[in-house]
Amino acid sequence: MRVLILVDEATASGQALLASLVVVDDTQLRAHYQEIAGAQGPEAPQDEGEPRDVLDADVQQVFSKWSRQ
């Protein structure tokens, strides 16, 4: 958890967290996504079903940003 929090320390506000790339397909880590996001400031979804949708959107945002660079 600490490593994933550190990875995103430099992530700009409003940007998708890089940690989403790791947690999106790991159900155990996905349960901690709220903690990772909370450490960086963004609000994580509280609903049980919503985190997967948010993570999928974050992953698409990260890949989109990388493909433009």
Score class of each variant (00 low, 15 high):
P45V: 12
V62L: 01
Y33G: 03
W66A: 15
S13T: 10
V59T: 04
A37P: 03
L21D: 14
S67L: 11
T27P: 03
E50A: 15
P45N: 08
R30L: 15
Q46A: 15
G14Q: 13
A16R: 03
A12M: 05
Q69D: 06
A37C: 05
K65F: 05
G14T: 14
A12F: 02
A37E: 02
R68T: 05
R52E: 15
G49C: 06
F63T: 10
G38A: 04
D58R: 10
P51I: 12
Q28G: 08
E35H: 10
D53H: 06
V22E: 03
A12R: 09
Q46L: 15
L29T: 07
L17A: 08
T11I: 09
L18M: 13
R30H: 10
E43Y: 03
L17P: 02
S64E: 02
I36S: 00
R30Q: 15
I5G: 02
I36M: 01
E43C: 06
W66L: 15
V7F: 12
H32I: 06
L18I: 09
P51W: 07
L21T: 13
D56S: 10
Q40L: 15
E9D: 07
V59A: 08
S64N: 01
E48F: 01
R52C: 08
H32L: 12
A37I: 05
A19V: 04
V24R: 03
S20D: 04
A31D: 14
A19C: 07
P45D: 12
L55G: 06
V62N: 00
A16M: 10
P42Y: 00
L21P: 12
Q34T: 09
R2T: 14
A10D: 02
S67N: 05
V7L: 15
L4F: 14
A39F: 05
D8W: 07
S67F: 03
V59H: 03
D8A: 13
S20W: 01
D56W: 02
Q40W: 10
Q40F: 10
P51M: 12
V23R: 02
E35I: 14
Y33F: 13
L21H: 09
D58E: 15
S13A: 13
V54W: 07
D8F: 07
E9F: 01
Q69P: 00
V24S: 07
D53E: 11
